[in-house]
């Protein structure tokens, strides 16, 4: 009984893999078996699903998982619990009614206003480049970096911390890498940003631009062995040949073809649609109210003093 069902099960699994990797680069030289299964899966999909209705929602989910990555739970099976995740999401939305958490990525420049007991005005504004974004649910965090008075400063903020008053995106862009920790070893000019910077507006409906800037690192000693990390946003490191040879030895080029590893690290697309369809209406409502508030603000009659 089970043996006859097995091929169908495989097809289903592979289909799921492919769905997850819609936005990512798909391995080209994967084995023949998988390719055959892919065609089967595609055929299977054609028969069962009515594609058109699904596509719009799929696209939405693809967008949402980049815009709101913290709504996806930790994929580690030992930490998962459906009820906890649901409650956590409802708490996140409750917090979002009080603060607008905008879309931003690693490489964007943000300004965060937070209340601080120890500053004289009890409020603190920090401008910096987002060098890392991690965590899921209420424990999601991001790190801002700036150079203030020739001193590199990094602040780790929690996205849902109720002491944050405002998160502004001054420049919305992406960089070539997922994490910009190498800015710590780069020349200070690359992580210096004017605290009084004006927000740069993108035309509506445009995609998020990618900044192709290549950063120049200071000479060694470094905090990490950057030559081993396959960084895209870094100029030639200018190291002796032996460092590159060693980096080549330690490379794991097969990992990007490891479907199982990727699968364990991500939430399946079916679950993503479930999660975001639950959250979507709330987020949409919040956006609409925010727009209304904005319009109201625009039509306020200017006073004489202004």
């Amino acid at each position: 009984m089970f043996s006859s069902l097995y091929p169908f099960y495989m097809v289903f699994r592979v289909k799921m893999f492919l769905n997850i990797r819609n936005g990512l680069s798909v391995a080209t030289n994967s084995s023949k078996v998988i390719r055959q299964l892919c065609t089967k899966a595609a055929a299977f999909e054609n028969v069962t699903n009515n594609k058109q209705s699904n596509e719009s929602s799929k696209n939405n989910v693809v967008d949402y998982r980049h815009i709101y990555p913290e709504f996806l739970p930790d994929p580690k099976p030992e930490f998962r619990n459906v009820l906890r995740e649901k409650l956590e999401r409802s708490d996140m939305i409750a917090r979002r009614t009080q603060i607008q958490i905008p879309e931003f990525y690693v490489g964007s420049i943000l300004a965060v206003t937070s209340s601080d007991k120890h500053t004289p005005g009890k409020n603190n504004r920090f401008v910096g480049i987002c060098i890392d974004r991690e965590g899921c649910g209420l424990r999601a965090t991001f790190i801002l970096r700036n150079v203030i008075e020739q001193q590199g400063v990094e602040v780790k903020f929690e996205l849902y911390d109720p002491t944050l008053h405002k998160i502004e995106v001054l420049r919305l862009e992406k960089r070539l890498d997922d994490k910009l920790f190498y800015l710590r070893d780069a020349l200070p000019q690359y992580s210096t940003f004017d605290p009084n910077m004006e927000p740069e507006l993108l035309p509506g409906g445009s995609t998020v631009p990618v900044n192709n800037l290549k950063v120049k690192l200071k000479p060694k000693p470094w905090l990490e062995r950057w030559e081993r990390q396959n960084l895209q946003g870094v100029e030639d490191l200018g190291l002796p040949e032996k460092f590159y040879i060693r980096a080549k030895e330690l490379e794991k080029p097969w990992e990007k073809y490891d479907l199982m590893k990727d699968y364990m690290k991500t939430i399946p697309e079916e679950e993503q649609t479930e999660i975001f369809s639950e959250v979507q209406s709330h987020l949409h409502k919040l956006e609409v109210t925010r727009k209304q508030m904005k319009r109201k603000r625009v039509f306020v009659k200017p006073s004489k003093l202004a």
């Binding site: 708490d91 996140m92 409750a94 009614t97 009080q98 209340s115 007991k117 849902y160 109720p162 008053h165």
Partner: peptide, 13 residues
């Protein structure tokens, strides 16, 4: 406990 619906925390001077 701070409720998630509550307005943002600010300290009085």
């Amino acid at each position: 406990v701070h409720m998630f619906n509550d307005p943002t925390i600010s300290y009085d001077e």
